[in-house]
């Protein structure tokens, strides 16, 4: 379970590039130890810039970042040794073997050689049988695993996964989700950006939404889905309706993709959902249905709706 103490604190962080583009605007964020935090946002929203500043790849224009209470600029050795990064692009060495590149990563982050640990990492990512392969001979999915293995080689406490499953097939994606869950179980804090909202819905404890460089929302996933999500009642009519009768206007009904579908959106947390009243009105209007189902809106629908509203 997630702890309460923040392992990462971002305070009033701003980034303005040389060409004047304001990539981040006054970002404030706390990440709790041991949680999985998903950072969502459209392309160019500032997700990668934020991660790159925290990891030391990009300089902030102002603001500060604390990792485990240490400033990421003045105490860069302590903070960086706690962080592992899996970048968005498939940027691996070309001619090195898998095991050699892991040993390089571990050494670079100041850790003494530990063959047993590297073996464990490679096995957990199903890479052990590829350990002597030259990286350029691996498939894209395997290279993605190598990047994760490299990020884990120095036993980080905070792992950044920038679009970890981009371009990865479904099976491999499921495997990676499993790896992330295992990492969380071992106490590693995971911060991921993703375009697959399903990924965030499956794994994240909390969700952050960033748009045009502003962090517009940070919320527990379950609460976010409860508060911003809609529940829908879908009725399958016996006979398609040419149009929704005026007497049903109060229910703000919508026609579905099929003409025999009628959709009613409601707040499941409200004192009265209005379902009983709707069913009574339908009976009085002589509208009969053969089946019904309810549907909770997905995180993807919430996200799309949220970004549209902000725009």
């Amino acid at each position: 379970m997630s702890g309460e103490s923040p392992v990462l604190q971002v305070e009033n962080l701003n980034k303005i590039y040389d060409d004047g583009f304001e990539a981040l605007k006054d970002i404030n964020l706390e990440i709790k130890e041991g949680e999985i935090f998903a950072l969502l946002g459209p392309n160019g929203a500032g997700k990668t810039t934020l991660i790159n500043i925290i990891c030391g790849i990009v300089n902030a224009s102002s603001g500060r970042v604390l990792v485990n209470g240490y400033d990421h600029v003045t105490d860069f050795r302590r903070t960086r040794s706690l962080i592992g990064l899996v970048p968005q692009e498939l940027t691996t060495e070309t001619f090195e073997s898998v095991l050699a590149t892991l040993a390089f990563s571990r050494g670079l982050f100041g850790k003494p050689p530990d063959a047993a640990y590297l073996e464990k990492v490679l096995k957990s990512l199903s890479l052990w049988n590829k350990k002597d392969n030259v990286i350029m001979t691996l498939s894209g999915g395997m290279k993605r695993r190598v990047l994760i293995a490299k990020a884990l080689a120095h036993e980080p406490r905070v792992l950044f996964l920038d679009e970890p499953t981009a371009g990865v097939d479904v099976e491999l994606r499921q495997d990676m989700w499993q790896v992330v869950r295992e990492l969380r179980a071992s106490g590693v804090t995971v911060i991921l950006t993703t375009h697959y909202i399903e990924e965030a819905e499956q794994m994240a404890d909390r969700i952050g939404v960033i748009n045009h460089g502003e962090l517009v929302l940070v919320q527990e996933k379950a609460r976010l889905m409860r508060e911003l999500g809609k529940k829908q009642l879908i009725l399958y009519l016996d006979d398609p309706l040419p149009e929704i009768p005026r007497q049903l206007d109060a229910f703000d009904l919508q026609m579905g993709s099929d003409p025999d579908e009628l959709i009613y959106s409601y707040d499941s947390q409200a004192n009265s959902t209005g379902i009983t009243a709707l069913l009574n009105e339908l009976r009085q209007a002589g509208i009969h249905f053969s089946d019904l189902k309810t549907k909770q809106s997905s995180l993807e629908e919430i996200f799309v709706d949220l970004v549209k509203r902000i725009r």
Binding site: F76, E93, T94, L108, K150
Partner: peptide, 14 residues
């Protein structure tokens, strides 16, 4: 050129 510089820049090396 290859992009692997990210690792060097994010590592605790002076």
């Amino acid at each position: 050129f290859s992009g692997t510089i990210y690792e060097l820049l994010s590592a605790p090396v002076s």
